[in-house]
Design a protein around this nucleic acid. Structure first.
Length: 213
DNA sequence: CTCCCGATAT
DNA sequence: ATATCAGGAG
């Protein structure tokens, strides 16, 4: 039983109608490749990530490939995604941990996923949803920003927002809801110039910009 | 809390 | 010039 009010239900309904079939935009062939792409997606557009992984996955495919990769070569391949030194080290360590501790397979639960280098709750929940179909609330920069604007949470800490959203949204919708907010955040409810004029949720939004801003 | 960091839009 | 982008680690 969820404690969602009429307004929340309406928001969910409209988002579902606008974005019926959501799926990750991060291109990948295997669960591990999605994990790598998601690590790369920190503070970077999915477009940049896909451009980088197209070349990256030609050189390295499996956890074994990545764990044995030359660090400088790896850094060069992902440089355009930013934070490339941290990301390269994390991906390499993550790959080794998967080989050594999980028999080369991406773990199918939150606890094991977040134990991997460079993998936090956001990344873990992406993988859980896309690979294993396990419900997870993905709180990234878009979800956090929009949840605050729509008044779905009073918190700013991503983990608290995650818990707030899990309370008002039914489990089977967690993954899709997250992805819908991400698409909505890119198109309409942008960080910089939110397009309130053309927003299909503005009549339900406490943060709506009035005419003449 | 700070640091990591290149690409892109405004 | 500045803000922002599918964040996470120390």
């Amino acid at each position: 039983m969820k404690t969602q009010n009429t307004r929340t239900r309406e928001i969910l309904k409209i988002l579902r109608a606008r974005y019926p079939d959501v799926k990750t935009q991060l291109r990948h062939k295997t669960p591990f490749q999605l994990l790598v792409a998601t690590i790369l997606s920190a503070q970077c557009t999915d477009r940049q990530v896909n451009a980088a992984t197209e070349k990256l996955f030609r050189h390295f495919k499996t956890p074994e490939d990545f764990s044995g990769a030359d660090t400088a070569a790896l850094e060069n391949l992902i440089k355009s995604t930013g934070f490339y030194r941290n990301k390269a080290a994390n991906i390499k360590n993550c790959a080794r941990q998967i080989v050594e501790r999980f028999d080369g397979q991406v773990p199918d639960n939150l606890e094991d996923l977040v134990s991997l280098a460079g993998v936090g709750r956001k990344t873990a929940n992406i993988v859980l949803g896309a690979v294993f179909g396990i419900p997870g609330m993905v709180v990234d920069t878009h979800v956090a920003r929009i949840s605050v604007r729509l008044g779905l949470t009073g918190n700013k800490d991503p983990e608290k927002i995650e818990k707030d959203l899990m309370k008002i949204i039914t489990e089977e919708d967690w993954n899709d809801f997250s992805l819908r907010l991400i698409f909505f955040g890119r198109q309409i409810c942008r960080a910089k110039n939110p397009d309130c004029e053309n927003c299909f949720l503005s009549h339900l939004c406490p943060a709506k910009k009035e005419n003449g801003k």
